[in-house]
Amino acid sequence: MLRLLPSLFICLCLGATPGHAGGDAKAGAAVFRKCGACHTATEPNNRVGPSLMGVIGRPAASVADYSYSEAMKAFGSQGHVWDEATLSEYLLSPKAMVGGTKMSFVGLKKPQDIADVIAYLRDPAAAR
């Protein structure tokens, strides 16, 4: 039995997924309503904030026709990409991650809300 424990541990670790991978796009669409006054995830049009359509995998501050804050431009120039880990940190507290950002939203405090929003941003059509 003791010989099996290391193998079992390795299998469990390899099968583990990041917490944000368990998000629900439908629940994320509901949480995204908080963001919807300033952003859209289903259209390429900018609002007060840039369009978030296709944001996952996109370099930060890279929507050509949007006027980013100097802080966000600097963040983008450092090579940051909006992957799930970066979005998770940013959505928790935008101003803590990018001091001086124009985004006034204080952040999402529940890890499940963050995971759900990311699932929605990854595939908005899955929320239907």
Rank of each mutant, 00 (worst) to 15 (best):
C11Y: 13
A25K: 10
W82V: 11
G57A: 13
G23V: 03
V106H: 08
A29E: 03
S67V: 07
A96S: 11
A85M: 12
S67K: 15
C38S: 09
D24P: 01
A30Y: 07
G49R: 03
C38R: 08
K102L: 15
F32M: 04
F75V: 01
G49L: 06
A119T: 04
V81L: 05
G57S: 08
F9D: 05
S51G: 15
M53N: 11
L4I: 12
R47G: 15
L8A: 14
A16R: 07
L92P: 04
A85S: 13
F105T: 00
S51H: 10
G76L: 08
G100E: 00
V55G: 11
M103I: 03
H20S: 07
S93P: 03
L4T: 10
G36F: 10
V63P: 05
L108I: 02
V117S: 04
K95F: 02
A30Q: 14
C13L: 10
N46P: 08
L87S: 07
A126Y: 12
I10H: 10
L52S: 11
E43H: 10
A25D: 03
M1P: 05
G22C: 12
S88N: 07
V31M: 10
G49T: 00
R47L: 15
I10W: 09
N46A: 15
C13W: 02
D24F: 05
R58I: 12
H20G: 03
M97D: 01
K95Q: 05
G23A: 01
P50E: 01
T42N: 15
A64Q: 05
K110P: 01
A85E: 00
F32A: 06
V117T: 00
S104K: 05
K102V: 11
V117G: 00
G19R: 12
E70S: 15
L121Q: 00
I56Y: 01
M53S: 14
L121E: 00
R3K: 15
A119C: 03
F9C: 14
C38G: 05
S93T: 07
A61Y: 01
L4P: 08
S77P: 04
Y68E: 02
K73H: 12
S104A: 12
K102F: 06
G49F: 03
K73M: 15
A29C: 13
R122Q: 04
V48S: 12
G100L: 02
V106S: 07
H39E: 04
R33E: 03
L2G: 12
F9Q: 12
D123Q: 10
V31C: 06
S67I: 13
A37D: 01
P18S: 13
C38Y: 08
A64H: 08
E84R: 04
G57I: 12
D116A: 14
I56C: 07
S77L: 14
I114C: 11
L8E: 06
P18F: 13
K26C: 13
L108Q: 03
A60E: 01
A119Q: 05
G28H: 04
C11M: 15
L92S: 04
K73W: 09
M1E: 13
A60F: 12
N46V: 14
P18Y: 06
Q112L: 15
A27W: 03
D83Y: 05
L14S: 10
G19H: 08
G36M: 09
G76Q: 06
M97N: 01
D123T: 07
R122L: 02
L108N: 03
L92I: 05
A16Q: 06
W82D: 03
G49I: 00
R122T: 00
